[in-house]
Amino acid sequence: MEDEPNSTGTLRSLDINRIFDLLGDQSFPVDTDEICSAYDDVEVTYSGGGSDPLARVLRTSGSQTYQTMDDLRLSILNGVQRNAVGRPRYSDRDPPVVADEYDHWRSF
């Protein structure tokens, strides 16, 4: 995917975890337009391939005011492509088995 660089002529491509590091010093509350303006040179890269400008990722949720870093982080995670967060509908944990907890109470 090709994106136009900002006025300095460069894009900062960062994986999603580095985006959160970059935003760590952000003061709150802050709105979508302010974040998009301040970080217009940032592109989110996905481990599965591809990338999106941070502004595009944030604008999938519309214009918002973020009260905390957690609000902003959630908006970013909700706005990234599916391949950014691993395999859809996959968990590396076994589902709980209801009977396991009480099997030791039964007498046969």
Rank of each mutant, 00 (worst) to 15 (best):
Y46L: 02
T8C: 02
L54F: 12
D33H: 00
R93D: 15
V80A: 11
A99Q: 15
E43S: 04
R89G: 11
Q67F: 05
P53C: 04
D25L: 09
E4N: 02
T32P: 03
D41P: 02
G62N: 01
V80K: 13
M1F: 06
L58Y: 02
D41V: 03
S75A: 15
D21H: 00
S47H: 02
Q67D: 13
S107R: 11
Y90S: 11
T65M: 10
Q67G: 12
E43D: 03
P53H: 00
Y46R: 03
P53E: 01
T68I: 10
E43A: 07
D21S: 07
D31T: 13
E34A: 11
A84C: 13
N83E: 10
R106L: 11
F28R: 13
G49N: 02
A55I: 01
S47P: 07
L58R: 01
D103T: 07
R18Q: 04
I16F: 06
V42N: 03
M69S: 15
Q26C: 13
P5Q: 00
F28M: 12
N78P: 03
G62Q: 00
V30E: 03
D52L: 13
L58P: 05
D31S: 15
P5W: 01
P29S: 15
N83H: 14
Q64T: 05
Y46W: 05
T10Y: 06
V42R: 03
N6F: 00
R106Q: 07
M69I: 12
V57F: 04
W105K: 09
G86H: 03
S37C: 01
S7R: 09
